Amino acid sequence: MIDTHVHFWNFDPVRDNWINEDMMAIRKDFSPKNLLRVYNDLQITGCIAVQANQSEEENHFLLTLAEQNEIIKGIVGWVDLLSPNLDERLTYWSNFKTIKGWRHILQAENADFILNKKFIAGVNLLKKYNYTYDLLCYHNQLTDIIKMVDQIPDQPFVLDHCGKPDVKSQDIKSWSENIKTLASNPNVLCKVSGLLTEADWKNWTEKELFNCFDTIFEHFGPERVMYGSDWPVMLLSRPYQDWFNLVYKYTERFFAAERKLIFTDNATNFYGV
């Protein structure tokens, strides 16, 4: 099994200022070694390390970790997709085969950025190098994400954290409608990940999360959904095993071959690991 969404960092209070005082559980270092025991217990054989810092130094940091830790099967890094030297930078990074794709933290940007022609052209260039692109956004940005994705045919996309629905309020009608539209694009997959931190961290219910799962699996189907944890961010709510067990419980309704797609095959095919 592959966990398609984990982060590693040596905590820096200035660089990592998004980890505020309410997040004491993750205001510390996290390395692959912290995952080995839980992965062994759950028979998870590898992970995709996703950028948490928007710098090319982050790519080298993750590459070093991957060289030292076999559980890292692929990396989703960061590169300046607006750079006039993007082609040159992608040529450079293509020498590092562990890097499978790229991500920009679009949840911190506005519509003008998401629909910027230069940004769209940058994402469009990724196909030349067979790179994937991870879409990170809030539910209220999905209409812009749909417009962006529709302008970049044949680019492999994956939506992180189900597009961050408002699990806490359960106001998910417009999110569900946008997920239906986004999923109609066959080039977009979805990670079932990161929902614990969109819920009430300590008081969420299984039903609240399963309501969101219902929408994702109805529209993407098990053929285009992949398991991810969003560790260590999800530790703000629960231990790793609780999230894994929740997803596993929900997917027991599927055939064994479909569960294999969700937990293994979709990830290996999408990221080429």
Rank of each mutant, 00 (worst) to 15 (best):
V225D: 02
V79F: 01
N245K: 10
E198R: 04
V79E: 06
I26F: 03
E177C: 01
Y39C: 06
I114L: 12
N116G: 04
R259C: 08
M226K: 04
I2D: 09
L126H: 02
E109K: 14
S169N: 14
Y271W: 12
L62R: 05
P186D: 14
T181R: 15
Q155E: 13
V158S: 07
P222H: 12
E70F: 12
F8T: 00
M1L: 10
L36F: 10
T264S: 14
G122I: 10
E258I: 03
A267G: 11
K97Q: 15
P232A: 06
S237R: 04
G163A: 07
M234Q: 13
T197R: 12
N40A: 13
L261M: 12
K100M: 09
C212Y: 04
M226D: 03
S184G: 11
T45P: 00
N245W: 05
Q68M: 11
T4L: 06
D214S: 10
H161Q: 11
L65W: 11
Q151K: 13
T91W: 06
K147G: 01
Y39P: 07
D29C: 06
D144T: 09
F8G: 00
L136K: 02
N17E: 08
P13W: 03
K100L: 08
A108Q: 13
W243K: 02
V123W: 11
P32V: 02
I262M: 07
E58V: 05
L135T: 03
I105Y: 03
K260M: 00
Y248M: 09
E208M: 14
P84I: 08
R15W: 01
M226C: 07
P32T: 03
W102F: 12
Y250Q: 01
F213K: 10
N187D: 15
K164G: 00
Q43W: 12
V192N: 08
T91Q: 13
L261K: 14
D171T: 11
C137I: 12
Y133N: 13
I145G: 05
R37V: 03
V6E: 12
E21R: 01
D16Y: 05
L142D: 08
R103E: 05
S229D: 07
I145P: 05
K260C: 00
I48W: 07
I105C: 00
Q170K: 07
V192S: 11
L86C: 08
